[in-house]
Simulated assay, not measured.
Amino acid sequence: MTVTGEDSEIGADPLDPPLTAPLRRDLNWHQVQSMSQSAGYREDPVLHAIRATAAIRRGTRMTKILSPAQVAGHLGGWLPYGFCYRSCDIAHLREPQDLALLRTDGATDGQVSFALRWRAVDPLDYEIPAAPAHPGLAALPGHSRVGAMVLGTGFTPSADDLIPEYVTAGFADLPLTANAQILASVPGGDEVVLYTYQPEQHGWLRLAGPRWRSLLGEIPGGSPDREYVPCTASGTARLVGRIDDNEYEAVADPPGEFRVRALTRAARYPVQTLSRRAEQARWRGADCWVLQRDETWARLRLLHPDADTISATGARCYERGIYESWAAVDELSDHHIADIGYQI
Rank of each mutant, 00 (worst) to 15 (best):
L27N: 08
W29V: 14
W29P: 07
W29G: 14
H30K: 15
Q31N: 05
Q31V: 10
V32F: 08
V32I: 15
Q33R: 15
M35R: 07
S36D: 06
S36W: 02
S36L: 11
Q37H: 09
Q37W: 06
Q37P: 02
Q37E: 09
S38V: 00
A39S: 14
A39D: 10
A39G: 15
R42H: 06
R42P: 03
P45M: 03
V46M: 07
L47F: 04
H48S: 12
H48P: 02
A49H: 10
I50K: 08
R51D: 05
A52W: 06
A52D: 14
A52M: 08
A52I: 09
T53A: 10
A54G: 10
A54V: 08
A54M: 09
A55D: 14
I56W: 10
I56M: 06
T60E: 00
M62E: 07
M62A: 11
T63L: 13
T63Q: 13
K64Q: 15
K64P: 04
I65T: 04
I65E: 01
I65G: 01
S67D: 05
A69Q: 13
V71M: 01
A72R: 02
A72P: 04
A72Q: 06
G73S: 07
G73Q: 07
L75P: 03
G76K: 12
G76D: 11
G77W: 06
L79N: 10
P80L: 10
F83K: 15
C84R: 09
S87T: 14
S87Q: 13
C88Y: 08
I90N: 01
I90D: 02
A91F: 02
A91H: 01
A91P: 03
L93G: 05
R94K: 12
E95V: 11
E95S: 14
E95Y: 11
E95W: 13
P96W: 04
Q97K: 10
Q97M: 09
L99I: 15
A100F: 03
L102W: 03
R103I: 14
T104W: 00
T104V: 13
D105N: 15
G106H: 08
G106D: 09
